[in-house]
Design a protein around this nucleic acid. Sequence first.
DNA 1: CTGTTAGCGCTTTCAT
DNA 2: ATGAAAGCGCTAACAG
Lengths: 330, 330
Amino acid sequence: MNIKEVAKRAKVSTATVSRTINDSEKVRPGTAARVRQAIEELNFYPNTHARTLVSGRSRMLGLIISDITNPFYPELVKSFEDQAVERGQEVIIGNTDYNPKRMAGCVRRMVERKVDGVAIMTSEADPALVTELTRRNIPTVFMDTGKTGLHSANIRIDYAQGIHEAMQHLFSLNHRRIAFIAGPMNLESARTRRDAYLSGLKSRGLSDRSMIEKGDHRIEGGAMAMRSLLKLPHRPTAVITSNDLTAIGALGAILHAGLRVPEDISLIGFDDISFAHLTQPPLTTIILSRTQLAVTAFAALEALIRKDEGPHTDYSIPTHLVMRASTRAI
Amino acid sequence: MNIKEVAKRAKVSTATVSRTINDSEKVRPGTAARVRQAIEELNFYPNTHARTLVSGRSRMLGLIISDITNPFYPELVKSFEDQAVERGQEVIIGNTDYNPKRMAGCVRRMVERKVDGVAIMTSEADPALVTELTRRNIPTVFMDTGKTGLHSANIRIDYAQGIHEAMQHLFSLNHRRIAFIAGPMNLESARTRRDAYLSGLKSRGLSDRSMIEKGDHRIEGGAMAMRSLLKLPHRPTAVITSNDLTAIGALGAILHAGLRVPEDISLIGFDDISFAHLTQPPLTTIILSRTQLAVTAFAALEALIRKDEGPHTDYSIPTHLVMRASTRAI
DNA sequence: CTGTTAGCGCTTTCAT
DNA sequence: ATGAAAGCGCTAACAG
């Protein structure tokens, strides 16, 4: 079942069939109709691999993420995929599992499959591996690496803005003992969030009041960090966490210690994963729109692939506080 | 950058390079080493499209699911993908969005991309479209359609078992007014769960005590159904829901009405999504292991692809009650 | 064990 | 507007 059989049935050459499939202008409508009918009758689907081989374009995009079971990602993947499918592109996904070795494997697979472009949306970044892509002139969009170039663009996430909004909110609620549960310090993005917390304290002359515990961006780490915080002689009245999973872990630890949120401790997360508003109480958090991120990434990638002119290689996504019920004045 | 250049550099023929890449026995170790070194030096990655074109095997598997943002799926996708990557296979994912038209698009894409096999794990099933796959002799594994054949296998989920365990549990806790919040009735799997509830009632001579509200397998539907249940003159003392999202919605509605779980109403979910144990109280639910499902599906698909002999086309996955804190005796 | 060669199914000049 | 034919990069006979 191939283009040849279609050609035979429509009594044209394979070239004409190919032109019809690709909506070439130079096919007489009548001929095109005959071809299309033959395609229909034979239930013919063109072989994308043959197409890729000769044209060089695979109509596949790579999307590399850290871990699909991390609730941050599914929405991102979906939005990205929706746009790709709309434009006849396929998406192949790579999970790095937060592991540089697996990241290398992902990149390799993308190159082997000859993707037209790659979006790298991992929370961790590995500049070395990423070079592999740009060296091969594969259009690449990064999240937060800062690197841009002829074949790559960067999407910066303004983590600081959301943190500043959160601190402003807590201050207006009279909180002064505000703790922060950080993420893994090897993550640039986690450091940025912590630094924003520190700078928020400093700008209010409260640098000496900083309380930082390290989490792991997972529930367990959040719970553990919170337990440490609760043991402090002057425990915090409010806690900002580096992500929602951490906040959920912290929430569990607070409840388990017989304290209440927000009566005893106010709590703010980060990311606004879909379950953030389902906690008891619904979690006040900082939203980072995955849809916006995916749309921006896709547009950036398309621009790179089309080699659009202009210096548009830097994009930025804001973050904002969304108030729910886990914060309260003291 | 292709096999020819590697051949030139290693001073062998392209055939030998090909054999080396494919770990053929018939290459002298010394030669193979030279080839591998050339590959290394040239940073050569074989073009999978060319390979597919000639060999007929794409080393890609299709995985069709309903919606990646439904928390039931990410774990399933991950487990499936992990196994695929381990065996050098790529996975392309299709989201149907619960929409037959999109399902058709997914199937089409899978055929075009010449996947070696497809696993269809949608909660809804469309026999017509599925024929498309089997007609083309594409190995296909279904979840719960019941159809099997030379090129297809079926994985049955024993929903009833979990429901029966749940009812047994509630009965032993002295509940007699047990309601059920069902899923969309066009879903076979949702009907199966409801029927299991009904049969559980019947076997205890309580057929006339049935209370069924219809949800939509989403949070909002669960909340709405629960509000209806709460308006009943004799409201239920326990509620089983068709999935966890429904239970979470129901939980919210109960709390919102000023009642408590499990003190006033016991609640049981279905699926054990990752957030089920994070609710307050942690949700007693029925577990359906996504890992087990993915592993079984993958194995079934592999067997189909390898054309293993034997009539192994029917598989079954159990479901079990996992007790947490949302149920209590009255 | 290694090389030669004929395609896989499609796109794309170059003729006509 | 259409057709003939040359590959795209690789694999798999078939020879040697």
